[in-house]
């Protein structure tokens, strides 16, 4: 903290600029506080997903980023993806197809929970929270779209992230289900005080977030 103040909570993008060759794709300077949702909107190809890649640390080497990204005061520069404590949900759930639903959740659950019984209980609780009790041994390929979305959310939460990124996370769900899952995600983030950055090209996603909207 070069200004000596207490570490600011939330996700801070400090004069972040991303460019490809000599073309500048975007420039952002903003803070997303705990429990707040910021929405970045723009047509496809405007670099929305590139911004998220910069935050997760998976930016293609072809892009150049300037500025700093800080999470709860900690500079993320140079940290590998797994050390950033940033959760991400995509349009596809990317449940691991070779693992059962329970094993997917166990993959997310931190190794700090050691005993097998305790891990199993944590996973059952996580499933019960989203009304999927007894689904632990199921094959993810047999779930419905809404069920998969909920498993993906719980898997991410079990890894105890400190910020949440949404990359068009709801765009594959049909309208009714979409509002339901969206409400669940935003409500959970608010309860846990997670800063949320979502990119979307859908206005209903932006309206539901009830937060700042940035157009690229």
């Amino acid at each position: 903290m070069d200004d000596g103040a207490a570490p600011s909570l939330g996700l801070r993008l400090e004069q972040v600029a991303i460019s490809l060759g000599s073309v500048r794709l975007m420039a952002l300077d903003c803070t997303i506080g705990p429990g707040e949702v910021m929405t970045v909107m723009g047509p496809s190809g405007s670099g929305k997903s590139t911004l998220l890649a910069a935050i997760t640390g998976t930016l293609d080497p072809a892009f150049a980023m300037r500025g700093r990204i800080k999470l709860n005061g900690r500079d993320l520069a140079g940290l590998p993806t797994e050390a950033r404590e940033v959760g991400i949900l995509f349009q596809d759930e990317y449940l691991f197809p070779h693992m059962s639903v329970g094993a997917n959740l166990a993959f997310g659950l931190k190794p700090g929970v050691k005993r097998r019984g305790a891990r199993r209980a944590k996973i059952e609780d996580a499933l019960a929270e989203v009304e999927l009790s007894g689904f632990a041994d199921r094959d993810p390929a047999t779930l419905s779209g809404g069920q998969r979305a909920r498993v993906a959310l719980q898997r991410m939460l079990l890894s105890e992230p400190r910020a949440l990124l949404l990359d068009e996370a709801f765009s594959k769900l049909d309208t009714g289900l979409r509002a339901q899952v969206r409400e669940l995600v935003f409500e959970t983030a608010r309860q846990r005080g997670l800063p949320v950055l979502q990119v979307t090209h859908d206005h209903s996603d932006a309206d539901a977030a009830e937060g700042e909207i940035v157009h690229l």
Partner: peptide, 29 residues
């Protein structure tokens, strides 16, 4: 193989070796 599968696994806190052995190799068996 979809690189976002890698991003998801890494964002869950798994290092590159764990992703290779637990996710990528089994999926590409």
């Amino acid at each position: 193989w979809d690189a976002r599968q890698d991003t998801v696994a890494r964002a869950l806190g798994a290092g590159p070796d764990r992703v290779l052995w637990m996710v990528r190799l089994p999926m590409l068996l």
